[in-house]
Structures are given as structure tokens and as C-alpha cells.
């Protein structure tokens, strides 16, 4: 049995809240560089140059990559041999968010749905906990911006729609989103499960490094096909027209009910931010 202290979780979460917002992952930066070379439109190339310059400033000066420092979404893997001492895990994560968003000069973007009154500290965080075997605790933050989240959808297709129906829905979702979600985007696709499972695996799919190949060969082919079709839309970086509308498409699949074909499309902007800490 491993014991993890409440205060250590707060400190760790505080740090990854800030790191995620200042320090863009190498996979994203590499993808910008590669895409810049492929992009045919000059306005599109200029966008990649700006995004690369933006990442340098953000990291060096600790200014958030994007003013939308997002909803603080966490994926937690809690080993069944882990005990939290001094308090509750969910409260520790929320305390870490409060500290990180305050000390990091990050924007507090969470409000009441109707009055729109801001909660003032970016809580409550959205926290998904998976119980896993072992004695380690892994906490991943993926701050999620509102612009790209607003372009995401869950739909319940008919089984007869099949894989072609899935492909058409995903491509049309990106087409209709246009410039809104800050292309070049990353498209997370969740197929199967239930209404909420599809959404959850679509979001989780966004955590996979850009450029990685899906270990399921069937899905690897589907991802390649979707990426090609999406990049043929011509939306381009920031919607100004161009070759690169998406940097990657990541698909996750789960068995579903004999009556259903749930599908979720979770769109992420190019500022694909995530950091993790392991205890």
C-alpha cells in the first residue's frame, strides 16, 4: 500500500495546471514544423510561424499559450493499493486548480450556466477517475478551451449507418465548424459504448501524442482516411484556406448495444495542452 499526501497532490496539480498552459508538448511543436512545410497557402504558413513563436514566448515568459486557459479536465488513474492521507482526492485536485490558476495568472473561465456569474477560481474541475491495479496514482490535466469544445457533438447513429455514416458525420462536423475551433485542429472520435462513453473516449483520444499510430490496425486505417478527407476540405490554418485543417484524427472504439451506434466528435484546437504527474 502506498500513501500519498493530500498536500503533495495539491502541489503537483498546481504545477501541472501551470506547465500545461505555458509549455506546449514536443509532439505538437514537431507537428507545427512538419505542417508548415506541407502547407501551400502563404497565410497558412504564416500561422504556423506565429504558433511556433507564441510557444517560445509562453514557455520563456510564463504567459499562457492561449487566453482561454480552459476548463480544467483531469483524467486520474488511481491504483487500488493507493491511500490518500489528509483529505479527499477530488478536493485535493480542486485545491491544486485554485492555486495553479491563481499563481500562474491563468484565466478563470467557469461560470453559472444562466446567471453567467464566474466561480472565481476555475473550479469545479471536471475529474474522471479510473480505478486501476497497482500502487501508483497518475493525474493528467487537459485544459479544454470553450471555442473548440463548442464545436464538439455527440450523436446516436443507426447501426445501418455503418462506418460510412461515421466518416460522413465526422467530416461534416469539421466542415461546419469552419474557423471557429482554431484550426489546425485535433479531432477526437469516440465510436460505440453508450451516449456518455462515446463522449468520454473521444475526449481521452485527444491525449494521444500527435503523430502516433493507433495500435488497432482497423482504427489506424480509419484515422488516416478521416485525416485525408478533413484536410481536403480546404479550411486550412485559422480557416484562411489551405492544406492543413487537422493535425491528427484520433479514434477510440468500444462495444455498443445491438440497437445503437453512438458517435462523439470532440474537437481540440491546435493548443493541445496536457501534462501529467505520477505519484
Amino acid at each position: 500500500m502506498k500513501t500519498v499526501k493530500y498536500s503533495d497532490i495539491v502541489e503537483g496539480v498546481k504545477k501541472i495546471c501551470m506547465d500545461a498552459n505555458f509549455d506546449l508538448g514536443d509532439d505538437v511543436l514537431e507537428s507545427f514544423k512538419k505542417s508548415r512545410d506541407i502547407e501551400e497557402s502563404q497565410a497558412g504558413k504564416d500561422i504556423f510561424d506565429q504558433l511556433l513563436a507564441n510557444a517560445v514566448i509562453a514557455k520563456k515568459e510564463k504567459i499562457a499559450l492561449c487566453q482561454d486557459t480552459g476548463f480544467s479536465v483531469f483524467f486520474v488513474e488511481l491504483g487500488d493499493d493507493v491511500k490518500i492521507s489528509g483529505g479527499n482526492l477530488i478536493e485535493a485536485i480542486n485545491d491544486g486548480v485554485r492555486a495553479g490558476y491563481s499563481e500562474g495568472y491563468l484565466r478563470k473561465s467557469i461560470c453559472h450556466p444562466f446567471t453567467r456569474k464566474n466561480t472565481g477560481d476555475n473550479t469545479p474541475a471536471i475529474i474522471h477517475v479510473d480505478l486501476v491495479k497497482g500502487d501508483s496514482l497518475k493525474i493528467t490535466i487537459a485544459p479544454k478551451g470553450g471555442g473548440s469544445e463548442n464545436m464538439s457533438r455527440v450523436t446516436m447513429l443507426l447501426p445501418s449507418d455503418g462506418i460510412d455514416g461515421v466518416k460522413d458525420y465526422v467530416v461534416n462536423r469539421v466542415r461546419e465548424s469552419g474557423a471557429n475551433p482554431c484550426p489546425p485542429i485535433i479531432v477526437g472520435v469516440g465510436i460505440g459504448g453508450t451516449f456518455e462513453k462515446a463522449a468520454m473516449i473521444a475526449k481521452k483520444a485527444l491525449l494521444r501524442p500527435i503523430g502516433s499510430i493507433n495500435p488497432n490496425p482497423e482504427l489506424a486505417v480509419l484515422e488516416e482516411d478521416l485525416l485525408k478527407r478533413i484536410n481536403n476540405l480546404g479550411i486550412g490554418p485559422q480557416g484562411f484556406g489551405g492544406r492543413i485543417t487537422a493535425l491528427a484524427v484520433h479514434v477510440e472504439m468500444h462495444p455498443c448495444h445491438i440497437a445503437s451506434l453512438p458517435l462523439a466528435v470532440n474537437i481540440n484546437c491546435h493548443s493541445s495542452r496536457h501534462k501529467e504527474i505520477i505519484f
Binding site: 504558433l51 514566448i57 504567459i63 484565466r107 473561465s109
Partner: peptide, 25 residues
Amino acid sequence: TGGAGALISKCIKSSEVVAYEDLGP
């Protein structure tokens, strides 16, 4: 350019709230 907030901040020389301070950001 959406998502280039750190870069864009370099051309903003001053910023002062002139209305609705209660709205925060």
C-alpha cells in the same frame, strides 16, 4: 490568430478596465 495569445500580447501596450469591472475577464 486564435491560440497565439502570448504573441499577440506583445503589441498591447496598455490595458485598463473602463466598464463592467464585475465581469472579470
